[in-house]
Amino acid sequence: MTSLEQLPLEILLSILLFVPDTDLRTMTLVSKKFRTLATDPILWKMIFTERNLNQVNFLLSKADRPDRLDLVRRNILRSSSSITSLTNDINTGSYYSGPFGVTSYQISVLLKQLQQKRVLTRHLQKRPTIEDLSQRNLVTSSSIAPSLHAQILTLTKEFKRMRLAAQMSKRKSVNQLPKNIAGSAQSFISKNLYPVHGIMERKLLKRQLRNGLVERSDISIIDSRKLIRNEPYLASLICPSIRPKIKYYEALTFEL
């Protein structure tokens, strides 16, 4: 009786190549030899490459691409993507491409500034005049200079105040008002003095409450009249600050 284990290793491996991966897992349980064979890394590599062949082909087609570090060493790329970290690298001297890279970076910054200046001047030459803007109703006052705006604002404010003062001096007193308006006091209150009215009412209520509290009868008098029993619940109602003490004693009694 020949067993499967007696076959040479290369044949066993070529058999396991045709076994699907779910059955390879059961093959690991058969014996020690098959455990080492079925968990062979090259075999599993082949399985995984077959499973995602598209990705592998894509990676293999891009294998000749140089590294990022190589590009930096050949002065094609900068060492880091963001400018702040790059300036830090320059200051600390840990820049990949050395002093040449530093000078090239500084020149590039100068060139950028020059280009921005040129663009700005071009746009300033092309910009429209104030008269054109006023004709298009984009700007209201074309004649006034922007430095006078603050003064104009203060002047308008003072003018408004003067006009209000003149109107106040002209208005009639309460007695001079016609009778219909003076007689209806409630409507007058509700309209103009409602907030003040509310405050007054609240103050009155407070005073009444305080008077009542000062004149209230003591617990001993109530006790003598047998209006209240000495029960913890009622006591807590009268004096809420006792409640935690009552709870404490209740807990003690429960424990006992």
Partner: peptide, 17 residues
Amino acid sequence: IKQCKDYHEIREKFNIP
């Protein structure tokens, strides 16, 4: 091997001790 269900069955079929 694919037809077998368990590792017991594989052992029986291929005479593996």
